[in-house]
Amino acid sequence: MSKQEGINAISKAMTALPAQLSDTILKHIHSLTDYEPVIGIMGKTGAGKSSLCNALFAGEVSPVSDVAAGTREPLRFRLQAGERFMTIVDLPGVGESESRDAEYAAMYRQQLPHLDLVLWLVKADDRALAVDEHFYCQIIGEDHRHKVMFVISQSDKIEPVSGNTKSLSIPQLRSIRRKTEILSTLFTPVHPVCAVSVRMQYGITLMAERMIRCLPREASSPVSARLQQPLRTTRVKETARTDFSEAVGDVLDSIAAMPFVPQIARTVLRYVRNAVVSVAHVVWDFFF
């Protein structure tokens, strides 16, 4: 299976369209298949950002640019898996000092419009959440709440800590449930709060499935292709497959609404739309 075979299959579903219009649509679909997602990850020092990224994503990581010591710039890393790329933006955690938080606020306002998703890590044993709440309400605001996914990290460290090194104890699971309820009440997030422990491999698969559902349509398939292989579950693939086919449908809808498209071509576009979306759903594996 190759990308070109997928493009050819979609092209066949559009044979009734004028060649120029079909070529325009195919260029937009090419852009969808080549989309490079950008995911921000934030959390206080020691929240386990690097270990979580390593647990989630496969590929070689390389810094996009050097950041001089003392500057308040986010670190950007490009993740390559085969011919595919994704950018991870390491955003500084808030609450470590008031002066830095003021600088970070401007940084976040600048970065947020360019991020597909923000993974906001809160350590399981962190009870100081007032600054996080203030920052979330004042900086994230209503415009970008849909981009934030809260993650309770290092769940194995929540009290009461047991001597079990392989799985969370029942009392710990109860504590995690309470922590989840606290964050849900405090932040009223758009997306469900996830709890993970990289060390015990707890909650990683569920988090990956939820993360794919949180992403914009154009980003879910490229991100799913960069997940560690065991995390590419049936649910992940089906969510991404549906998102891709619907994104293709969005392309046809947007082109049909353009003023330069003749009425007869607009009618044909609407006629072939469902067929093109169905084909895109079937050939998803050719691309991702």
Rank of each mutant, 00 (worst) to 15 (best):
E5T: 09
I10D: 11
K12S: 13
M14D: 04
T15C: 00
T15Y: 10
A16G: 08
A16W: 08
S22P: 00
T24D: 13
I25D: 01
K27H: 09
K27G: 02
H28A: 14
L32W: 05
Y35L: 05
P37S: 13
P37A: 09
G40K: 04
M42W: 07
G48D: 06
S51R: 07
S51H: 07
L52S: 12
L56W: 03
A58K: 12
S62L: 10
V64R: 11
A69Q: 13
G70Q: 08
R72K: 09
F77E: 01
A81Y: 11
R84L: 12
F85S: 13
M86W: 02
T87S: 13
T87A: 02
T87C: 09
V89I: 14
L91A: 10
S97Q: 01
A102E: 15
E103F: 13
Y104M: 11
Y108A: 08
Y108V: 02
R109A: 04
L112K: 09
D116N: 12
L117D: 01
V118E: 07
L121M: 14
D126W: 08
A128D: 15
F135P: 01
Y136L: 02
Y136M: 05
R145C: 01
K147I: 00
K147P: 08
M149F: 03
Q154P: 00
P160S: 02
P160D: 05
S167K: 11
I170L: 11
P171R: 08
Q172S: 05
L173K: 15
R174S: 10
R174M: 09
I176P: 11
I182Y: 03
L183Y: 06
L183P: 04
T185A: 12
L186E: 04
F187N: 00
T188V: 02
P189E: 10
V193K: 06
C194R: 11
V196F: 07
V196I: 15
S197H: 03
T205D: 06
T205P: 01
L206N: 09
L206K: 09
L206H: 12
I212G: 11
I212K: 09
R217P: 06
S221R: 14
A225P: 02
L227Y: 07
Q228G: 09
L231W: 03
E238K: 15
E238W: 06
E238V: 02
R241H: 05
F244Q: 10
E246K: 11
A247Q: 07
V251P: 10
A256V: 00
A256M: 10
P259W: 02
F260C: 05
V261E: 04
I264F: 07
A265G: 04
V268C: 06
L269P: 12
V272D: 07
A275Q: 15
A275T: 14
V277D: 01
S278N: 15
V279I: 12
V279L: 02
V283G: 10
W284M: 04
